[in-house]
Amino acid sequence: MGRLSVTLCGVGLDNPVIPASGTFGYGYEFAELYDINVLGTFSFKGTTLEERFGNPTPRIAEAPAGMLNSVGLQNPGVEKVISEELPKLRKCFHKPVMANVSGFSLEDYARTCALLDREEQVGWLEVNVSCPNVHGSGMSFGTDPAAAASVVRAVKAAAKKPVIVKLTPNVTDIVSVAKACEDAGADGLSLINTILAMRIDLRTRKPVLANTMGGLSGPAVFPVALRMVYQTARAVKIPVVGMGGVSSAADVLEMLMAGARAVEIGAANLTDPYACKRIIEALPGEMDKYGIGTLAELTGG
């Protein structure tokens, strides 16, 4: 065990740094820039049963200390991910990868997870419950504890690998959703997804995003994310992966102190393609500053 090692749902990580889904593609593009095997793992682009283009453009906007996106889960669909993307990934990444899955019905989630569960390189299934439920009046699965729990049960019945549920912050009480997922059998939780937001272009007097609203990420959301990770980690026994605006080694330590077992890094990858590598390299020095011998001291393992 190195100084930076942590364990996530029984799977060891060399360090707790995990590029977040949707900011790292399927990995191989970043592998042209650096050896991505320095990462703890990474969560690949959100995958759905069928191919999706996503929302119309513009689907990116800037914010103070952050950005909005309304990409809308563009991906080639699970079969092409398995036949085309994962073979390319295997050539440059030799660790278990986190498979991020979205769906619009319980059956979608179960089928997509079942297919990815069979892939040897998949170490965890990260199930994003922020999509609208097409059979439940369009409300997001993740905003209702019972609906989120139903996704967890469907996925757990279809897959053997650890299931980490990615929670939305766009709820009144994230702890009640977290607890419902834990009770339904989730092996871990990751939070927060982006915060619903919008911008208006003063020239056109119209929303910047074609979709009107999008998700805010970046340093702007870090304190909100930290608070939610803290509240959730105290309320559940399963491991919590903290994310939301993490952009430095100090932020990683802060998330771990709030109760996270590992940390995902999203928007920072988009402005600095080397962000995760730099944060991993900076961690030992940052730990020295605060007298932290090993990260396991903070995470409990």
């Binding site: 949707g22 900011t23 689907r59 990409v71 563009q74 990858n269 988009l270 393609p273």
Partner: peptide
């Protein structure tokens, strides 16, 4: 967003 293919924006 990124300008290098990561975000699909």
């Amino acid at each position: 967003g990124c300008g290098f293919g990561a975000c699909m924006g």
